[in-house]
Design a protein around this nucleic acid. Structure first.
Lengths: 338, 338
DNA sequence: TTTCTTGATTGAAAGGTTTCAATCACCGAT
DNA sequence: ATCGGTGATTGAAACCTTTCAATCAAGAAA
């Protein structure tokens, strides 16, 4: 009748096995210190009673949690789930669980998750900061939590980070569009405060400014999903024909897919009337209505390196701060006439 | 110099504020029981000292964790992340964090996560069981953990569950293809042991068997991603022309996208040469190379209902077992000639 | 037989929070 | 001046595991 009989503790095991709690603990944590006979006996009792370690007590005693926390910007974006998966796999190898929180770009939710992780005393933290959480991160670090920033640079050698060169990515995209002969470019994405958006835009602008007669219009969105892309595209479609861009650079692939959808719906041909390039090169980019050109980020590598840096920091909290910047690459497909 | 000075505890706060630990605890948990003066004072001290609750100790004392665990089949599949997001949002409203584990269809990893959640004494568990974990779930339930099964039925009124009628979904898909005049159908997906695959296939078979001259070929895959879809399609392409299907029903949209890609690459026209229908209706289905027909599962609802059932069970562990079966709907797009 | 050595086992303390019965201080009523 | 009552505060106990100094047992060496 499912009576939630109180949980079995080491004490119960000890009593049932006729040994001390210390011995039970040794069986659990240092079996080599225990004589084979008692080891077998206690193990049997553990199984029989269905004893399960209470992780809360273990942590309390240990002072910290083996788990690692990660705050991810948007679980609906395959880019981030791929990175998270890379992290999770690396951590699983060393037996550390990953606790995933989804901030959805919302500073409030980001803060809520940081609170949670702080209360949980996680041993490490992976963050792609959205709000101005640096002071928060400093406090966590000073308290002994390893912190690694993912997909964003941090000045001043304060934190280890892995990032992809977004400025260069922005350049690659714009360069490609300009090479193809486009001159009226538009950049769709936002909000502008997001570092990645800002850098990709700046990179693009630098390239555009270097070419005579080339222009770049910035259409700011408040999120980075397909819906935002659709709305951004509609805004561009509403322009008088002579101002309408002949090439669109979307801040990520989800936005690009939305743009693509809106343009197709409006009867425009891609890439003949308007070329489109995205960013991230998620798996879906290749199988879009018109296969999408994109700036590829090495996302598995991003996750793996992030995990590696974090583990190094957990090992040696006073070790050197490491900064890794990975290179993006251009992937040309149909949507820009590939 | 980042000296990881030992964490500030209630005791430290009490000492600094000149009150007892009991009062500090009251400030934290029952502020209405504390006089306004002390409340203000203690709160100030908490801020000044940067005190953060130690969740391990709190849980130890409370006996259970507020968090809820969820084991998800495949984080790379937007269907599951959408469901998870629905769950997370419902839980956030009542201040419960969600700990997400990704089994990747692997029974071993599923077990690892269940172990973790059990050690963590989570107050509830959402599972889409992949292996034969029913005994495990029973044990957890008997121990007082609320358990709700997601996206799968369970016989015998043992567990509350939310599922979508997969048999009917399979029927809808096959019916639609048959209505369009197709007679040589193929079903791509697997492994066959997965309940959802089995039911969708069975539903399709029932419809096919009811039509004279209609056939259904089962191409079994070992996973459910785009790669599996591509390989499945290649297998079909290798058949002699007269045996080649004129319509393909994929067990989910990722597989369908892979199939679509392989067929397009091989120069076949969709839907003229071969029609394709997927399952789930993830957001990407609509923006595929050729917009994909699909059987839509109400995934946000699935997540919300799952959270609701779980919370009800946490409230009243001895309440009645609730079984909810949601209806899938057919969404017709270009890939079947919509 | 006694003393050493070694390996196995013990048991109490510590870790931080919450709970709750007990105490305290104070005010109004008698 | 005393009593009762009320609201605020206290402090010890409990939650479960791990650690480590101390003890014990048994066999080897003297």
């Amino acid at each position: 009748m499912a009576s939630a009989s109180r949980s079995v503790s080491v004490k119960d095991v000890a009593a049932a096995a006729g040994v001390s709690v210390g011995t039970v603990s040794n069986v659990l944590n240092r079996p080599e210190k225990v004589s084979p006979t008692t080891l077998a006996h206690v193990t049997a009792v553990i199984d029989r009673l269905g004893f399960i370690r209470n992780d809360a007590a273990r942590q309390l005693r240990a002072g910290s949690n083996r788990a690692v926390g990660m705050v991810v910007l948007d679980v609906a974006n395959p880019f981030f789930t791929d990175v998270a998966r890379g992290v999770e796999e690396s951590l699983a190898e060393v037996g550390r669980p990953l606790i995933l929180g989804n901030s959805g770009q919302d500073p409030d939710r980001e803060r809520t998750y940081l609170d949670l992780f702080e209360e949980q005393r996680v041993s490490g933290l992976l963050v792609s900061p959205v709000g101005s959480v640096l002071p928060r991160l400093r406090r966590l670090r000073d308290r002994g939590t390893a912190v690694v920033v993912v997909d964003r640079r941090v000045e001043g050698q304060e934190f280890s980070f892995v990032a992809v060169d977004d400025l260069r990515g922005g350049r690659l995209a714009a360069q490609h569009l300009l090479d193809r002969g486009h001159r009226r470019l538009a950049f769709v994405g936002g909000p502008a405060e997001i570092t990645q958006v800002e850098l990709r835009l700046r990179g693009a602008r630098e390239e555009v400014d270097a070419v005579d007669g080339a222009t770049l219009r910035f259409v700011e969105t408040d999120t980075m999903d397909a819906g935002a892309g659709r709305r951004g595209a509609e805004e561009l479609l509403a322009l008088p024909a002579e101002e309408r861009p002949d090439a669109i650079f979307a801040a990520n692939d989800l936005v690009a897919l939305g743009v693509l959808q809106a343009l197709t719906l409006a009867g425009l041909r891609v890439p003949e009337d308007v070329a489109i390039i995205g960013y991230d090169d998620i798996d879906f980019a290749a199988s879009a209505a018109i296969p999408l050109s994109s700036v590829r980020q090495p996302r598995e590598q991003l996750g793996a390196v992030a995990a590696e840096l974090l583990l190094a920091r957990i090992e040696d909290p006073h070790g050197p701060v490491t900064e890794v910047v990975l290179e993006p690459t251009l992937v040309v497909r149909r949507s820009t006439g590939g």
